[in-house]
């Protein structure tokens, strides 16, 4: 008779410890910081209805959390997700965005939902109502593409003039990004790995250093070798009388530099963007890459080691390559 009583006592003790720990955890429960709604997204109601239903819980200042999401330790995970989500995109602070940024964010949303990366599968498991349907995607796509058409209509057809050149810089005046990525003129002599355009009416040329070119040719993407550097030079499109597009005003040079140790938080890639003739680096702190670069690269370009614009694998081997 003594044994079961002892067992019971032990069970009560264990329960008491668990409850005490659980209650104790709540003292370390940091609530999500309440922030005002400074300007919500303006879009057709059918679009905002989808965003409110599927995205606002994390990407806004208007969280409607379930009770279990407010209790530690679940609340810690929720807070981490919400903080990160708000950094990347916040529908409650949308007023600060320019029309071009609005368009860019809509394309990011479209690509994320199309690829099934957002909402996070773990989130929809607990919140099935937040799931995005094919119809929802079609609504978002139609709206996003309509923004491009609006923009296109606004763009006047101008004759091709001299493209704006990227200035050469003296070695001691090379700009450095907040995360340590240093600008270099050297890319102008590197091989062009690909060319691209984007919805924002830009024309782009992507250069790779020797390590990066070798990695492309040998498909060494997982991971890319340290020392790979890829530079994307971006110009505004200028349309000639015959409809052909060439480079106009120089917009920026975007760097991706591989160093697994140095750039641990961004999948080993150091991101940098140097804009305008003064090549001003984007980002006041090193955090900018986590806030505005890696999210899309991580979710949408994982198959090529987090790089968009890797040459497509569609050319037969043995094409002529003439040397001089």
């Amino acid at each position: 008779m003594e044994v079961p009583r002892r067992k019971k006592k032990r069970l009560y003790l264990v329960l008491l410890v668990i409850i005490t720990l659980f209650v104790g955890l709540q003292f370390f429960n940091q609530p999500i910081i309440g922030k005002p709604v400074t300007g919500t997204i303006e879009a057709p109601r059918e679009v905002t209805a989808i965003l409110e239903r599927s995205c606002y819980s994390c990407h806004s200042n208007e969280q409607q959390l379930s009770w279990f999401e407010q209790v530690a330790p679940v609340s810690w995970l929720v807070k981490k997700d919400v903080d990160r989500a708000r950094e990347v995109m916040n529908f409650s602070e949308w007023g600060a965005l320019s029309p071009a940024e609005h368009q860019g964010k809509m394309y990011a949303i479209l690509n994320m939902v199309q690829a099934g990366k957002m909402p996070l599968p773990a989130y929809t498991l607990l919140h099935p109502a937040a799931k995005i349907s094919e119809d929802d995607i079609a609504v978002i796509k139609a709206y996003t593409l309509s923004l491009s058409k609006d923009e296109a209509n606004k763009t006047a057809v101008t004759l091709v003039e001299q493209p704006e050149v990227i200035p050469d810089r003296l070695p001691d005046t090379l700009p450095i990004s907040a995360n340590g990525v240093k600008y270099t003129d050297a890319f102008k002599d590197w091989k062009v790995i690909s060319m691209s355009t984007l919805f924002d009416h830009s024309i782009r040329v992507i250069y790779g250093n020797d390590i990066a070119v070798k990695a492309v040719e040998e498909e060494k993407f997982h991971p890319w070798p340290d020392g790979s550097v890829v530079v994307k030079a971006v110009w505004e499109q200028v349309e000639g009388a015959d409809g052909e597009i060439r480079a106009g005003k120089f917009i920026n040079a975007q760097f991706m530099e591989k160093n697994a140790e140095k750039y641990k938080d961004t999948e080993g890639w150091g991101f940098a963007k140097f804009s305008g003739q003064k090549l001003i680096p984007t980002g006041k702190t090193a955090l900018f890459a986590q806030q505005s670069c890696i999210a899309c690269h991580r979710q949408l370009a994982a198959s090529t080691g987090y790089l968009f614009d890797v040459p497509l694998k569609i050319n037969r081997k043995g094409l002529i390559q003439k040397n001089n």
Binding site: K191, V205, V213, E217, N315
Partner: peptide, 17 residues
């Protein structure tokens, strides 16, 4: 294969679409 054009001693000048 993924082709990167080898221009030999030539340098990239410009692009068009």
């Amino acid at each position: 294969t993924r082709v990167v054009f080898d221009p030999g001693a030539l340098k990239f000048f410009a692009s068009s679409v």
